[in-house]
């Protein structure tokens, strides 16, 4: 995803003179091609994220289209107040990109985990929160973000995510993308959990349960039209995210169910209310928190048969 991000913003910068890239001292060499397009539109802002976000807002107030890029906790929780006041209160088109989201950097420890980012950014008026599931959906998210008139947050993984879309999909912010149609249950997945969601659907299929798999790339705005239809078609939906159970996709869908008084049961897969104190790989961390196809399929199957 990282490489696709660098490649796509380079293309967008070549097409649009207003695109500016701000990096928080990461991505050494990643942006060499961007700099070849126009060196004056790339800024390494150093390890100073609060200032970087304010600078981006100042650029956006001056008619530019800045993208702010660094590791997710540092471009979200670290500078939350700058996002709130400078980008959102002014409602300017700053695109914030967090790399290594969720448990992508599990082995780096909780300082580098991001399991709260969607929760906190979703609270900000006018902010769109996007979680693409693969490199091609990320490209589509970037193209859509640059057409917005307000701030957008895009949470991405690192590298090596399975390819879901063979080409850049037709994507609309606020409209869910059905990856696989189904008739018994719906698996609503945010971001890089899509590989596990599809594998869970395969397991359910083997048990005779038809699962619809959906990329909920827009956590905000939420596709309430899709959800309303899903509530009619399914008796069970499951939300899947590499994010805390407080405030992310699962919460957003639960809030919608309460508002809409929707008669559909929801299972929520995500991480619990804790920091992970032991070391481990992303795979280890996902197993620890039950974010595997096996555990999720088993949970859905059991709930479906209840």
């Amino acid at each position: 995803m990282r490489n696709a991000f660098a490649d796509e913003v380079t293309k967008l910068a070549a097409q649009n003179q207003r695109v500016v890239m701000l990096s928080g001292d990461i991505g050494n060499k990643l942006f060499d091609n961007f700099k070849k397009v126009d060196e004056r539109r790339f800024y390494n802002c150093g390890v100073a994220e609060a200032n970087m976000m304010g600078v981006a807002a100042g650029m956006a107030l001056s008619g530019l289209r800045p993208l702010v890029y660094t590791i997710t906790p540092f471009t979200t929780t670290r500078c939350f107040e700058q996002i709130r006041v400078d980008a959102c209160y002014h409602h300017v088109p700053v695109t914030i990109v967090g790399t290594g989201s969720g448990l992508s950097y599990a082995e780096l420890g909780p300082t580098h985990h991001s399991l709260e980012d969607m929760a906190i950014l979703r609270t900000l008026p006018g902010m769109s929160v996007l979680a693409p599931c693969d490199a091609n959906e990320l490209r589509a998210c970037l193209r859509a973000a640059l057409k917005q008139d307000g701030p957008v947050y895009i949470r991405i993984g690192k590298k090596g995510e399975p390819t879901i879309f063979n080409e850049v999909p037709d994507l609309h912010i606020g409209r869910a993308s059905i990856v696989r149609a189904g008739s018994d249950v719906a698996l609503l997945s945010a971001g890089t959990m899509m590989g596990e969601a599809l594998a869970a659907a395969d397991r359910l299929h083997a048990e005779g349960i038809s699962a619809e798999v959906v990329s909920m790339h827009s956590i905000k705005p939420l596709d309430v039209e899709y959800l309303a239809g899903a509530a009619q078609r399914f008796k069970l939906i499951a939300t899947i995210e590499e994010h805390g159970l407080i405030g992310g996709l699962g919460s957003a869908v639960a809030e919608w169910r309460a508002r809409a008084n929707a008669p559909v049961r929801q299972l929520a897969f995500g991480t619990p209310d804790e920091f992970m104190h032991e070391v481990g790989s992303q795979e280890y961390a996902r197993r620890k928190y039950g974010l595997t196809a096996e555990v999720m399929a088993s949970g859905v199957s059991q709930a479906f048969r209840e």
Partner: peptide, 13 residues
């Protein structure tokens, strides 16, 4: 920081 962004925008534009 916002002012700095505006000043850099002047340079870019």
């Amino acid at each position: 920081p916002i002012g700095l962004g505006m000043a850099l925008a002047a340079r870019i534009q």
